[in-house]
């Protein structure tokens, strides 16, 4: 589907945020500047993260945690060199913590991908044009119809 503006992306993400359950995993992939952080900002609003909380890019910090109705954990594996570092990071701990995990660059570690997750692929089609394609894995498949049911 087409994403027409950052605010449209955030509205779409907020709607998903309202549907999520504890332990749900959202995988975000796509090039730098494709809208991943923007989407997570909307997702956080939908999960009930306070409006005053700034949702920033997690690349440097690797993990950012936000308390909310459903806590949000934002994980960015961009700077992780190999899978053994995931243990040090407490990756599995976050997945099992009951928080919603939004994970960027998970495709670098396919063996670490949890079986139930929603995969979002962002693409840059032009200076202002972004597209999003969605794939559900395991029990997250049914989330797609709940989320995008009324959409083309």
């Amino acid at each position: 589907m087409n994403l027409h503006s950052p605010s449209a992306t955030q509205r779409l993400a907020a709607r998903l945020g309202k549907l999520l359950q504890p332990g749900d995993v959202i995988e975000l992939s796509g090039p730098l500047g494709a809208g991943k952080t923007c989407f997570v900002q909307g997702l956080a609003r939908g999960l009930g993260v306070a409006r005053t909380t700034r949702i920033t890019s997690p690349t440097f910090n690797i993990v950012l945690e936000y308390p909310a109705r459903l806590p949000l954990v934002q994980i960015d594996l961009y700077r992780i060199a190999d899978a053994t570092e995931l243990i040090e990071l407490g990756f599995d701990h976050y997945l099992e913590s009951g928080a919603v995990c939004a994970i960027e660059w998970l495709e670098r570690f396919p063996e670490a991908a949890p079986p139930h997750r929603l995969s979002l692929q962002f693409a840059i089609e032009g200076p202002k044009r972004r597209t999003l394609s969605v794939v559900g894995h395991g029990r997250c498949k049914k989330l797609i119809t709940q989320w995008l049911g009324g959409q083309p």
Partner: peptide, 11 residues
């Protein structure tokens, strides 16, 4: 900042 940190923009 509302999104990326300045250092992250550089990197």
């Amino acid at each position: 900042t509302r999104d990326d940190a300045a250092g992250e923009a550089f990197d």
